[in-house]
Amino acid sequence: MQNSTAIKENMLDNTVNIEKAKKMEVFEPRIIGFLCNWCSYAGADKAGAAQKPYSPNVSVIKVMCSGRIDPQFILEAFKKGADGVMILACHPGDCHYKEGNYRAVQRHRLLLRLLKQFGIEEERCRFDYVSAGEGDRFVSVINETVEAVKKLGPLKI
């Protein structure tokens, strides 16, 4: 396996890349979306099954439960160049693991305070609820976040 730097170089060579986009002065933000397996990931599938197009700027990382999302993951994403991070969880009371989403929301609130100190705007780190049936909601939450981060411009830290 190659290290990530090598991969990065190859990626830059071979795909439509961010630098190019920036040069063209069209800012395409890179956003990491942490989705829980049971609700929000299924909500994304629902949007897919309905073939509802949405902005491609959010890369999804699946975890079993939003409670698994360690604040370190979010910081790591910003460190590695993400312009935004999303955490999508089951609605209150619907968590497959009963209360993981409550932990996730608590941690998110605390993290926002910390991000502020780093100069990272609140809008760059969105927490929201999407159920397995809410394909439309998934699409609108993604598009809203991408638009909000586009307005803020690239992350400067």
């Binding site: 990530s4 991969i7 990491i32 890369s59 990382i61 590695k80 993400a82």
Partner: peptide, 9 residues
């Protein structure tokens, strides 16, 4: 972490 890193590479 690996996923995050490569996803943003």
């Amino acid at each position: 972490f690996a996923e995050i890193g490569i996803m943003l590479a």
